[in-house]
Design a protein around this nucleic acid. Structure first.
Length: 493
RNA sequence: CGGGGCGUGGCUCAGCCUGGUAGAGCACCUGGUUCGGGACCAGGGGGUCGGAGGUUCGAAUCCUCUCGCCCCGACCA
């Protein structure tokens, strides 16, 4: 077969990423520029993400609904900041049914306007609040430059939209959902996320405050993969979302919105995968374990397949997402490479020797520090008795899940540079893609813009206390004025 | 939208400069032998050269326009 190897991450990270996406059959370009077809391998990951998130949303009291794709253009233009933010990336429908429309329809870039206009109809009194709703949808934003999963003109996401009596309740909701995202990313995607507040320049168009989760990719660029906004009363005022308060007065509701998208799939790839291909954390792996039977003679094939099928049934019954690779046109070695490329967490080999000894061989996609170390230059192979399988496989999946998280977190820590006090050092660090750069900032948009202009790095976030350095910076790394915040600078996707 | 690169069977690419009517490897199909880290032999199917227009007796090859992809920059989840 002699398949070509992937480009190496260290040599061409972009090419490596693109090759993984297409060769692992996650997605490919559509005939329409900037749009993508998500193939079953990629969509399977997204489905598992959806399932887990949806459960978490329900557990925090949210319900799902669906609002339409088309939004009257006039809705978008009502909220000043919102229009300004989205105008350049709107797709507008001007014709329908063969006639020019009286009012053009915007293909939703996000649904604040249509949703809050509806909430306004549904809410009369404080008794109707809070509204805690979510929708799973596609949205369209006209983009100049696109990349599969990371930035496409149409993407899939969920957008939560809530309405509350008080600013404090809205703020609590905003932070609660940011926390849900972080938990989800860490527990399911094995992605260590830094959470914090966005600066004014990075804030969502129409929000009071925007918070985000930021994850460091293997090329040391940051990926914002979740945002949560406290919208204040901006949209409520524009769409007349009012309620009679407990005191009898008429008040505008306080809104929040929060979303994550298929961009997370791209982040997942860039966090864990290696030069052999995709690496998928077990909890979001469409196939968690693949069984590769090995045999020479027909007699061996018979006994090996019988054993493989039995193991398959047992493991499947235990709730593991397992596949038996019974393709007979491919050699086992070739299958090994194939499943490594596709990121399956565990591979099981069953051959004549295993049948004889009533064992199987398991090879984890990523080396597990808790298991016996491999021989130098070899892959880690675990020899497991068939009688232990039901206990061992879930354990190995768990260990792989946490191993990926530990690896990613260690990498992030190794590439977080704290207490940077000179601007020259910032320039030097950004120039060599050093990662997350923690430094003081005076809070001025001028200093922020200067750094962006001169280095391409932006303030990713004003990190929450648990991420802040032990020693608080005293001066702005740009102007030398007194520091208002410690911020994280980094190049970003 | 600016700069650069590239579009030739499913994939990677040769052919283009010096026009003469399309080729390789891999993949795919059939049969056989194989199978513990990318198997081998034999046979076979498949492209009109991104698209449109032009020059020419004749265009993958020359010219014009256009579409798309990739990289870099400005904008962004």
């Amino acid at each position: 077969m002699a398949e070509d190897k992937l480009p190496k991450r260290s040599e061409d990270f972009s090419a490596w990423y693109n090759e993984i996406v297409t060769r692992a059959e996650l997605a490919e370009h559509s005939p329409v520029r900037g749009c993508m077809v998500i193939r079953p391998n990629g969509y399977g990951i997204w489905e598992l993400m959806q399932q887990a998130l949806d459960r978490m949303f329900k557990d925090t009291g949210h319900v799902n609904a669906y609002f339409p794709l088309f939004i009257p253009q006039s809705f978008i233009t009502r909220e000043a900041a919102h229009v300004e933010g989205f105008a350049p990336e709107l797709a507008v429908v001007t014709h329908g049914g063969g006639k020019e429309l009286e009012e053009p329809l915007v293909v939703r870039p996000t649904s604040e306007t249509i949703i809050y206009s509806m909430y306004a109809k549904w809410v009369q009194s404080y008794r109707d609040l809070p509204i805690l709703m979510n929708q799973w949808a596609n949205v369209v934003r006209w983009e100049m430059r696109t990349r599969l999963f990371l930035r496409t003109m149409e993407f899939l996401w969920q957008e939560g939209h809530t309405a509350h009596e008080t600013e404090q309740q809205a703020e609590e909701e905003t932070l609660r959902m940011l926390g849900v995202y972080r938990t989800f990313m860490e527990e399911y995607l094995a992605m260590p996320a830094v959470t914090g507040l966005k600066t004014d320049s990075e804030r969502f168009a129409g929000a009071l405050r925007t918070y985000s989760t930021e994850v460091l990719m293997q090329d040391n660029k940051a990926l914002q993969n979740g945002t949560s906004h406290n919208l204040g009363q901006n949209f409520a005022k524009v769409f007349g979302l009012q309620f009679q308060s407990r005191e009898g007065s008429l008040e505008y509701a306080w809104n929040t919105s929060w979303g994550v998208s298929t961009r997370m799939v791209g982040g997942l790839i860039m966090t864990h995968s290696d030069d052999n291909g995709l690496v998928t954390p077990p909890r979001v792996a469409p196939i968690q374990l693949v069984i590769v039977p090995i045999f020479k003679t027909d007699a061996e094939k018979l006994t090996v397949m019988e054993a493989a099928e039995e193991v398959f049934r047992i493991i499947k019954a235990a709730g593991v997402r397992v596949k038996l690779d019974d393709r007979d046109s491919m050699s086992p070695g070739s299958k090994f490479y194939d499943w490594e490329l596709k990121g399956v967490p565990l591979r099981m080999e069953i051959g004549p020797k295993d049948v004889e000894k009533n064992t199987v061989v398991i090879v984890p996609r990523v080396e597990l520090s808790q298991e016996e170390a491999p021989k130098p230059g070899k892959k880690q192979k675990l020899f497991i008795s068939r009688t232990e399988l039901l206990a061992r496989i879930p354990q190995l999946l768990d260990r792989l899940q946490s191993q990926l998280y530990e690896n990613a977190k260690a990498r992030r820590e190794a590439n977080s540079i704290r207490n940077v006090t000179s601007y020259d050092q910032v320039k030097e660090l950004v120039a060599r893609d050093a990662g997350f750069i923690y430094a003081g900032w005076c809070g001025s948009a001028e200093c922020e813009a200067k750094v962006k202009e001169e280095t391409k790095a932006t303030i990713r976030v004003i990190p929450f206390p648990e991420f802040q350095s032990a020693e608080k910076p005293s001066h702005c790394v740009v102007c030398g004025g007194s520091a208002k915040h410690e911020v994280i600078w980094s190049k970003a996707y």
